[in-house]
Amino acid sequence: MLALDLLLQGVVQGAIYALIALGLTLIYGLLRILHVAHAALFTLGGYIGVIVTNETGSLPLALIVAMVSVGLLGIVIYRLAYKPLLDQSPLVALIASIGLFIAFEEVFRLVFGSYGLSFENPPLRTQVNLGGGLLISHSKLLVIGMAIIMLSILAWLSTRTRTGIAWKATVTDSQIASSFGINIERVRYLNFFIGSALAAAAGVMVALLTNLVEPTMGAVASYKALAIIVLGGLGSVRGTLVAAIAIGIVESFGTVYVGHILDRDALAFAFLVIALMIRPQGLFKAG
């Protein structure tokens, strides 16, 4: 029973990782930038989710507001921060992004205070019985559901719509894409919007699970999401998904069985390093 319980925990954690890392993968796939500040958008999503829910009492509304506004902020960040740096070495964008991330965390602390916020009436706390004594809260179910829904929408967007096909073409070869009349700049804006909105959704989900948002909640996301997209093969959506779930599960089992030697993060990274030594290009080829 313990094993099943751990597996479930791992999957929930993995679903959250997937939501955070997917946006990052989209952005990396297009621009080859390790966008650390993505984690700040995740935190902001969490804050907006809690504040709007507390004000209006509606979680769905809060989720939508968070995703849209953070998505727009993502576009602004691309326009002001990354666009001018695209023809520099990717390291420059990485460091700029880290600077931005530090600044954002401080802004959150100054604006929202350092102690964090909680839901006044924590939604979806009730437990469901999955049979055989396996309990799961509604909020956890929602997290898994969200991950599945978002992924399905993403898959549908990228294979069935004109925009999605334009996006894929741009990822494969932006020069060829633009000579076929695709507006690359628009694809990039859209990419940042979707990626950042996904981060916001992840922020709201984490707020639901922990009933707490604080300025530093993006710290773990900032590095672990990088690890996941790298493990997934950098730019591969399928790879990111598999890597996220795998790391979630490794963490939940590892903390129980080898937790006395290594902590949670170290476990995840031990897995990452070993996996990369075996497959230096990540689990899946980009695409």
Partner: peptide, 27 residues
Amino acid sequence: MSLRVRHDFLAITTMGIAFLFVGFVRK
């Protein structure tokens, strides 16, 4: 290890080493 992984993969591998070190010392 750097002979096996390159560029961004290497950056993240070295990051992993740092977390392994800290995680190990902690325990």
